[in-house]
Design a protein around this nucleic acid. Sequence first.
DNA 1: CCCCTGGATCGATGGATGTCAACATAGACG
DNA 2: CGTCTATGTTGACATCCATCGATCCAGGGG
Lengths: 123, 123
Amino acid sequence: MSKKELPVLQAPPCCTPMVREPLAEDDAKALAASFKALADPVRLRLLSLIASFAGGEACVCDLTGPFDVSQPTISHHLRVLREAGLIDSERRGTWVYYWVLPEALARLGSLLATDGAAAAGAR
Amino acid sequence: MSKKELPVLQAPPCCTPMVREPLAEDDAKALAASFKALADPVRLRLLSLIASFAGGEACVCDLTGPFDVSQPTISHHLRVLREAGLIDSERRGTWVYYWVLPEALARLGSLLATDGAAAAGAR
DNA sequence: CCCCTGGATCGATGGATGTCAACATAGACG
DNA sequence: CGTCTATGTTGACATCCATCGATCCAGGGG
């Protein structure tokens, strides 16, 4: 695990809110790929569930229970999240553990920021 | 325009960072729908382009130029963004104008917030 | 060694999605 | 009214994607 399957893709456009200036075509493509990883209910719950675990990491065995889908499907979603650079994993003895990469998440969040706007009750 | 085609969907889970506690199944579904609207390069660029226009709104005639896709395709993407509650539109004489709904964007952004994390150089 | 268990991978399949060409509609303007 | 332009809608089509069952691989005990 913790493989280097992600050639580039690791440094999205980053940090200038997209409402400021028009996104470049390539940036938009990379960004869309990231959001696509978030565009699934199971993946969102996985991400949220992993992050909520004590210590910030969870064993796959903790993750298959709460869902209605099969184990291969969970494994597939975890792979998508990992290839999007949102989580990482490591085998530790018998089990494989996953954890969230907060910077990646925060980076996407900052892209969505809208200066003036009411921050949508954030906080 | 400005139709009320969006029955509910308008009030996403909102505001507690998803890394805090596990997302409820229904919330995840709604959230995923929102992110799905962002999960396309053309739509991201459209959103960014509209927001960047002076006055915060743009005529469709301004939006078809910068893209390689046909006008019906642009119209389709604008509809997707509108039904996701991210933009709204109004016909004004000959042209139709679109603008971004910043609260919706900010709401999604706040969901991605990660307390501790370096804020990914945000700012 | 052999088998058991946790987890990933493969191949197939049904459903969603992006795209286009063709057509429909709404104002503007004679 | 008739027609021209700006947009939206429809139907078709190719591709992508979530999901599953079957299978494979890795470690840990016997």
